[in-house]
Design a binder for these strands. Structure first.
Length: 511
RNA sequence: GGCGGCGUAGCUCAGUUGGUUAGAGCGGAGGUCUCAUAAUCCUCAGGUCGUAGGUUCGACUCCUACCGCCGCCA
């Protein structure tokens, strides 16, 4: 049986429009997905993303705009769907937690957990923050009973609620967390282990409708809706074509989640507990990324520097934001983001290296041979050296991609482009071409380069899908030849197209 | 308060299990070629590797303390 993988982004909370932080998660995940599709075959990879639409904060965001919750989240969800389209995110399923199919699945999970006595009822009283949608203990609060996250008064609430047994499963959860590679990068492992070192409280998974009815009703008590996190986790699998136990038991062990570091705890503890409580296997791993800063400052709605990712697509063209984020940010660490840095990368890497290399090679092929490849790649030492560099990039970049080191993967490709530029200077085909007697050698040199460019474009596809396709179109290569190893793609007699500027230099910073 | 991370050239970062002159890219300076998007290519950075000690024949790489950021927990 073929190896499969199921990949998800976080199901995004829909209390506001998409910003650049969301885009980062989608782009990184999408590139990983595209890589996996190439490796395993498209049919063996599923990619789920979507919007998390229930809960107190969404409800309040809707009220703030004078809307009922459903029309509000309809609008927000549509914005996210548009962002995915604009960013070229190749998801297979876009889940909305308000979809009937998803809601039915959540209720199935809840009922099963209840039947297995994994959910129980008890009275609870405490200090509750509506912003956080959680209870606080008194010593967690700021003076004056203020919520430490929102700096606003918490409310005293006494009510019966349903709880999911967590402590009972703590050892089992820990055994999953400790699995090698379960949490990537490993730097986040300790945090979770610390949380699991001591007894953990069972998780309240209900909200009385009297307080909040914007949620999925508990199947065993119509006075309650379920906690938004319980709801959201289910979305990772709820809309797959087959949600039978057998299907889920197959898909969960090959499931990889991409999340931000802020939701590490919920994913590392609550979600495994939910799965264990219904007798399903725990997912394979959590890929945790950092936050994005803008010019050194954290993105936030209040500071007003929340950038619309689609504006960047419009300004710089497709793939540029994606290239920048993958190349300039170390996965797992916080990253800094600014127009100045994008433009630096754009000019240095995309215009000067990739774009210009494509132009000069295609231009010489056009000028000296009317676009026709008339030779196989050369066999001199310098030719073979360059061929060797390009022949190795797919495997090297792949290994880095597997470990989420997207920056290193791209570096490998760029080292090859660099070698190609040096090779052009060293072999000087443009000088040789002045004497027609040298044209056979010039043909070898260009064939060596064109084949390298082809391999580079092919390897680049997961990280720059649009640009890679444009280069392969300029090379006029069919899909099968595009994927071939170095030396097996472009053949003598093949005709390539004249160059077009892929990434025109940006001379002045945009505002 | 507890646990953990980070602090290397102007900027962003690499630096394997400690070992000859600490590396790369970008930016900046000079030069070169002319196929190419004034792009390419070559040369140039002398940075007390946060501070102070310690271990060692020898530490950016190990240990301790401290300073400065940051995260998680309490």
């Amino acid at each position: 049986m073929a190896e499969k993988v199921h990949i998800t982004t976080a199901i995004t909370y829909s209390n506001g429009p998409p910003h650049i932080g969301h885009a980062y998660e989608y782009l990184a995940t999408d590139s990983y997905v595209r890589y996996q599709r190439r490796k395993l075959g498209r049919e063996n990879v599923t990619f789920v993303t979507g919007t998390d639409e229930h809960g107190d904060k969404n409800y309040r965001a809707a009220l703030a705009e004078g809307l009922k919750p459903k029309p509000f989240v309809d609008r927000i969800s549509e914005l996210f769907r548009a962002a995915h389209a604009g960013l070229n995110i190749s998801y297979d399923y876009f889940v909305r937690t308000t979809d009937p199919r998803h809601q039915e699945f959540v209720q199935r999970m809840l009922q099963r957990a209840r039947d297995r006595d994994e959910i129980y009822y008890r009275d609870y009283e405490g200090l509750y923050c509506v912003g956080c949608e959680r209870f606080y203990t008194e010593k967690e609060l700021l003076p004056g009973n203020l919520c430490p996250a929102h700096n606003r008064a918490v409310e005293f609430i006494k009510e019966g609620n349903y709880f999911l047994r967590l402590e009972k499963h703590r050892a089992e959860i820990r055994s999953h967390v400790e699995r090698p590679g379960f949490i990537r990068p490993e730097r986040y492992l300790n945090e979770v282990l610390n949380m699991l070192a001591e007894p953990i409280e069972d998780l309240c998974i209900s909200r009385p409708k009297s307080r909040l009815d914007w949620g999925i009703e508990l199947p065993f008590d119509s006075n309650y809706v379920t906690y938004v996190w319980y709801d959201a986790f289910c979305a990772y699998v709820s809309e797959l074509p087959d949600t039978s136990d057998a299907a889920l038991s197959a898909i969960l062990p090959v499931t990889e989640h991409f999340i931000g570091k802020d939701i590490l705890k919920t994913h590392a503890i609550y979600w495994p507990a939910m799965l264990i409580s219904v007798g399903l296997p725990v997912y394979r791993c959590l890929n945790v990324h950092g936050w994005l800063n803008y010019g050194g400052q954290r993105f936030s709605k209040s500071s007003g520097n929340v950038a619309d990712p689609l504006e960047y697509e419009k300004t710089y063209g497709p793939d540029v934001l994606r290239y920048f984020m993958l190349r300039d940010i170390v996965y797992g660490l916080d990253g800094d983001f600014s127009d100045e840095r994008i433009i630096e990368r754009y000019n240095a890497d995309l215009a000067n290296d990739l774009g210009n290399l494509t132009s000069r090679v295609l231009s010489m092929t056009q000028r000296y041979f009317g676009g026709e490849i008339t030779s196989a790649p050369g066999a001199n030492a310098e030719d073979r050296a360059l061929a060797g560099v390009f022949a190795a990039i797919a495997e090297k970049a792949g290994a880095f991609t597997e470990e989420l080191a997207f920056n290193r993967a791209l570096e490998v490709i760029w080292q090859a482009l660099d070698a190609a530029n040096k090779y052009i200077v060293a072999t000087s085909p443009f000088t040789l071409a002045k004497d027609r007697a040298n044209l056979p050698r010039v043909a070898e040199i260009l064939a060596t380069l064109l084949e390298g460019l082809r391999v580079a474009a092919d390897t680049l596809e997961p990280f720059m899908p649009t640009a890679a396709r444009r280069i392969l179109e300029l090379l006029a290569v069919d899909e099968q030849s595009a994927r071939a190893p170095y030396g097996r793609g472009l053949k003598p007699g093949h005709r390539v197209k004249p160059p077009v500027p892929l990434f025109p230099r940006i001379e002045k910073p945009h505002n």
